[in-house]
Design a protein around this nucleic acid. Structure first.
Lengths: 164, 164
DNA sequence: TCGATGGCTGTTATCATATAACAATTCCCT
DNA sequence: AGGGAATTGTTATATGATAACAGCCATCGA
């Protein structure tokens, strides 16, 4: 069992292997309950997405898969896996970066709201903030029926501000 | 002078030519003050972006330009104009749609927050809502220095709900 | 066990969005 | 008129995503 501190996220050292295994375990549960199949490929893609707390592009995932295997999978392979993972709330897509990131708490469905550091590229998922109620209030006032919320706040995280 | 009601936005009939001329007038002012040149091309692109209240893709703009002229401009032509217009706050980019829309009030700099109807595709720009303060509060709590806010709420506008 | 069914994956081709790099032109100031 | 900077034109290419169809394989009922 690998309990080493992750090198992927030097700004906030933690046992990242725990993040990954937690995410995979949660994914098993979610799929189990939904009667969906978390196949080897899907699990592998989810694991790769979780290799860091940075959003990763589909072609980054393809590159990694190509390095692991001898054969390079074609784009649809990864996009289909990502579609599946998104449908089951296991990953979020970051529209402003054309990238994907693991969902912090896939147990309950929710919108992904993120703080994204432009320097270290780490994305922090926000939960239970005033943002969602604010959106709901505005939408209601406008008679607008919300279906999905894209909230991506870019800037500098606390650590990168200090470093600068 | 064309005072006809716009056919572009049937859900909310209004004198759309007024929107366009207002936007162009405001743009002149903004550029004047900034010492920036609102060239013929930039003005034309801004006018095209304002042809409706729907976000338009860069290639849609290229298509329209190609129809107007005899020669089809190359992508960088339009992207550069869009970059300029964005820098001066005259258009916003909608990340979730890879599209662009005219800014409702370019006089003061602000983040673009939008309600976007998935049915009629109209985007409504939100101003002075609780969303910005909510974001500011969350960011401050996290020690995060906000530089830009992408807030794109997709769903059904009031009219399209009735129609369904 | 067999075969049918549906879901998953592989494969090829292509579309859609965006930018790099450099050349030509135009504008503006002196 | 001439020089320098900003703007636009042009070619090529990078990057992100999907359509369409073929093949595979798990599972389930006969």
């Amino acid at each position: 069992m690998n309990t080493s501190v992750s090198l992927e996220d030097p700004h906030c050292p933690h046992d990242h292997s725990q993040c990954v295994s937690d995410a995979l375990a949660a994914a098993e549960q979610v799929c189990e309950r939904a009667g969906a199949r978390l196949t080897a490929l899907r699990k592998r893609v989810l694991e790769l997405v979780w290799q860091s707390h940075r959003p990763l592009g589909a072609y980054d995932l393809l590159d990694t898969l190509a390095r692991e295997d001898d054969r390079r999978p074609a784009p649809p392979t990864v996009y289909r896996a990502l579609d599946f993972l998104q449908e089951h709330g296991l990953v979020h897509r970051i529209a402003s970066l054309n990238a994907f990131i693991g969902c912090a708490s896939p147990e309950h469905t929710h919108q992904g709201h993120f703080l994204i550091c432009r320097n270290c590229r780490v994305a922090i998922e926000l939960e239970q903030t005033l943002i969602h109620p604010a959106i709901a209030e505005v939408a209601q006032r406008m008679g607008f029926a919300v279906e999905s919320e894209t909230v991506e706040i870019a800037g500098l995280c606390a650590h990168c501000q200090e470093a600068a």
